[in-house]
């Protein structure tokens, strides 16, 4: 099928890591998702003494996965999330249990945007979204230091302008 060696090649991780503060960002995100339910149960446990047996267990059962998620996910993500740009392409890895690698040639890039949610801003982080003509083709690099992100956008915008457009 091809003339390059098959069977010995694998995808290497992109060169650049995201900023370590991203761990804190992911952890607080996880807390926002996972903690409200056990917190509600705990308050009920405190305030309605006759139901203590039930809400005690409910609090524990809801809290355990939330804590595990909170501890495991951010560290795992930090190991996986990486990015890289070359003269011809953008390459990014993301996910933890379910991992994705995305590659987009610069010649197909349509727009380069920065995205900063309120939580990301609190951690001084920024995300870069590189879109193509495909609805499924966007590459998102989140958890970058704001200065790094600005530099990346600058660089990508300049190189996509330099390369003849062939968007579709």
């Amino acid at each position: 099928m091809s003339d390059h060696p098959v069977g010995e090649w694998r995808l290497r991780p992109p060169r650049e890591r995201v900023h370590p503060r991203a761990i804190g960002w992911w952890a607080s995100q996880a807390a926002l998702i996972g903690l409200p339910l056990p917190l509600t149960f705990a308050i009920l446990w405190l305030t309605i003494p006759p139901t203590r047996g039930f809400f005690g267990w409910a609090t524990v059962i809801a809290l355990v996965p939330a804590v595990v998620y909170n501890v495991v996910m951010p560290a795992w993500r930090y190991r996986v999330h990486r990015w890289e740009t070359t003269d011809t392409a953008v390459y990014a890895a993301s996910g933890w249990l379910w991992q994705r690698w995305r590659i987009v040639p610069l010649s197909r890039v349509q727009t380069v945007d920065t995205v900063r949610g309120p939580l990301q801003q609190m951690f001084g982080l920024s995300g870069v979204t590189v879109t193509t003509a495909s609805a499924a083709g966007a590459v998102k690099i989140n958890g970058l230091d704001q200065r790094v992100a600005a530099g990346l956008v600058e660089r990508l915008t300049r190189s996509t302008e330099a390369i003849p457009v062939d968007a579709t």
């Binding site: 099928m1 098959v6 090649w9 694998r10 590659i103």
Partner: peptide, 19 residues
């Protein structure tokens, strides 16, 4: 990976390494 490299030669190549 070989399929991707065959379909669009050169796009994936810089990001491959030997096992």
């Amino acid at each position: 990976l070989a399929l991707a490299e065959d379909a669009v030669p050169g796009l994936l190549r810089p990001f491959l390494e030997r096992r």
